[in-house]
């Protein structure tokens, strides 16, 4: 369920047009005019709330994800950051008890609307998961899976696309001689890069990453982080991470979540050096969480 995009007096969560000053509410003091209001947003949330059954996982949050930047979502576990991420391509549809209110726009269209073509949405908003999850197929077939679903493409076009995707994910040199080998034979870090290659092969606009490095060793993590900053030139990236150093290293903007509320969302440098809120400061300095 969602509230209309334009404010209606009857709505419990009046949506405020982006950029306008919003009156602070109890428990939502963090909301303030966004300094980057003039920038183009890929995804914007307004008065967005989410529930699992009767448990409210997210409390009326509003934020913007600017185009071609890396936005990091940080916060202690259970704070709702993954839930928020999974709404951005409606992966929460798989959980029958999950529902949401408010608006969550992709380029100005509410992606929570019932008419949204979820399949098309997910093609445009790709996702990389916590644990690498390659299909038990060959490396080639893993990459070609998405393109084959969405386009009918000639053999040579597909070969080329697979190569470009693997190159973009910095995996081509390692696997070019064994494209027909099972993807399960790759190392964890390689598998995760394969998953990234698989996600970008369908030509998404936004790439969601749910703790993409938490199951990897430090060297693979470094490789993925390097990849993320390269990809950010082409894609809008939203990354959920437990690791604050990682957020500081890879992201342009950081949003801090705590107990289902968005406490603060700002440029990464500001969040880590001069946060507005005590809670944020405590968290980024490691005093809790």
């Amino acid at each position: 369920m969602s509230t209309p995009a334009s404010p209606t007096p009857a709505s419990p969560h009046p949506a405020v047009p982006f950029g306008q000053l919003r009156k602070p509410e109890a428990g939502n003091e963090a909301l303030r005019p966004d300094p980057n209001a003039g920038r183009r947003s890929a995804i914007s949330a307004k008065a967005f709330s989410s529930w699992y059954g009767s448990f409210q996982a997210l409390h009326s949050l509003s934020m913007e994800v600017p185009v071609n930047e890396v936005t990091a979502l940080i916060g202690p576990s259970g704070c709702g950051k993954s839930t928020f991420l999974r709404w951005m391509n409606r992966m929460n549809d798989m959980i029958s008890s999950a529902r949401a209110e408010g608006t969550l726009d992709l380029h100005g269209t509410n992606l929570l609307a019932p008419s949204t073509d979820v399949v098309e949405l997910r093609r445009r908003v790709g996702m990389v998961f916590q644990k690498p999850n390659p299909f038990p197929k060959s490396i080639y077939d893993n990459i070609a899976y998405g393109p084959r679903l969405h386009r009918s493409m000639g053999r040579s076009d597909l070969d080329d696309l697979v190569e470009q995707a693997l190159k973009a994910a910095a995996l081509w040199n390692e696997v070019k001689d064994r494209l027909r080998a099972s993807a399960l034979g790759l190392s964890g870090g390689q598998q995760q890069r394969l998953c990234i290659a698989r996600a970008i092969a369908v030509g998404p606009e936004v790439l969601l990453m749910d703790e993409p490095c938490s199951a990897l060793d430090p060297r693979s993590t470094a490789a993925i982080e390097e990849l993320i900053s390269q990809l950010s030139e082409q894609y809008t990236i939203v990354i959920v991470t437990h690791n604050m150093q990682q957020a500081a290293r890879v992201s342009d903007r950081t949003a801090f979540f705590y107990e289902g509320r968005l406490v603060e969302c700002d440029e990464t440098e500001r969040i880590f050096t001069r946060p507005k809120h005590k809670q944020t400061e405590d968290y980024v300095t490691g005093r809790f969480g």
Binding site: P147, R151, G154, D157, D160, Q164, A201, G203
Partner: peptide
């Protein structure tokens, strides 16, 4: 190149 490759075909 990837962006262009992804748009090929029907």
């Amino acid at each position: 190149l990837l962006a262009r490759a992804a748009q090929r075909g029907r």
